[in-house]
Write a protein that binds this DNA or RNA. Structure first.
Lengths: 190, 190
DNA sequence: TCTATGGTCTGACGTTCGTAATATTATGGT
DNA sequence: ACCATAATATTACGAACGTCAGACCATAGA
């Protein structure tokens, strides 16, 4: 009785969310229009409102999805501090800096999220908690709660460093920021 | 020969820049239209193009002005590390978090600046250099160059911490981030 | 096999808002 | 009174969000 497989809409919706995540991280939330987002997903603007109530609604789901994905990916690194050091080096790399579309959502969107409506901030809050816990668990596997503060510091320094490096027009300075960032993060961890 | 005092246009221009700085930090660059910016300055949109070639042109001047002002203000703190500690506590305060319009331009706009055209990034780069030098001079008055890396780390952690606190919908968590941020920053300094 | 169903998507539209540009008016020092 | 200047008001044009009627077509059921 139906034209599509019953999962079809869910699949489409997920594709919209994932493509929108890339686009937002590249061009910003305000900088990405509905038409562009839908065309990224291989659809036209008209189909958008069959999937989401509004752009804000999409943004909240994208933020949640992005953070969930990030936490899942971080969970696959080798365990404990060595894995965390890998993550730091990977995070503060020129590749990550130069490809925001497939990178950390916080580095790309954090200040814009701070200006979003509450639904989006709520989604971000949940994700941020999970990230902090993931980092804390690696800093102090035996007592993660004791490392919460340090985990927050490490995370914020990484995000700020990547953002700063992206905002600099002088490549030498931008590279220096990343290199010092790795030093600083590793020093701060210990 | 002229209707206004010869400085009049300069004064108006400066007023536009300063008001635009506040507006950008509150609503974002993409989130602020020319009409709003001009009405903030007590003018109408039509007068804009007598002062700036384009919105991008304004943005670059605003970024330069904001960073210049920030560096000047930081220069007035008491000298050396004690002054730096004051700045850290002031920076990572709920007041600063809750009033982005009169706060740090980096915390409010850094990721958006990373997506701006080169003129704006250049303006930001100059300002960032000055800030790093100001911090380094306080960390190691006798040899600022040796403290450059640490200054970068301190600055990025402060920016990231404030952004994170602003993006959280849970006030308790947001406050925790600020408090841990002060601890982390002071620990990192020494 | 054929057809009716109904979920999904298309594409055009209205309205609002954006940047940008131009024409016009108000002003006040010389 | 003149007239250079700065601001206003108006216009153009595109892009934004959101809406809608209808096209499309895979599949269930005859």
């Amino acid at each position: 009785m139906a034209r599509y497989a019953k999962e079809h809409k869910q699949v489409t919706r997920q594709r919209i969310i994932e493509k929108a995540g890339q686009r937002f991280k590249q061009d910003g939330i305000d900088g990405s229009g509905i038409s562009t987002l839908m065309s990224d997903a291989g659809l036209t603007n008209g189909a958008f409102y069959a999937h989401f109530a509004s752009k804000d609604d999409l943004v909240a789901h994208v933020v949640a999805d992005e953070l969930r994905t990030q936490v899942a990916r971080y969970g696959t690194a080798r365990p404990g501090r060595p894995g965390l050091e890998d993550l730091v080096r990977d995070y503060l790399s020129p590749e990550h800096r130069d490809h925001p579309g497939v990178g950390c959502p916080s580095a790309a969107l954090l200040d814009e999220i701070g200006r979003c409506e509450d639904g989006t901030k709520q989604a971000y809050t949940d994700g941020a908690r999970a990230i902090v816990e993931e980092i804390a668990a690696r800093l102090a596997p035996e007592d993660p709660r004791s490392a919460r503060g340090k985990a927050i510091g490490l995370f914020t320094m990484m995000v700020g460093t990547l953002q700063l490096s992206r905002a600099l027009s002088d490549r030498k300075f931008a590279d220096e920021v990343l290199e010092e960032g790795v030093e600083n993060a590793l020093a701060f961890m210990r």
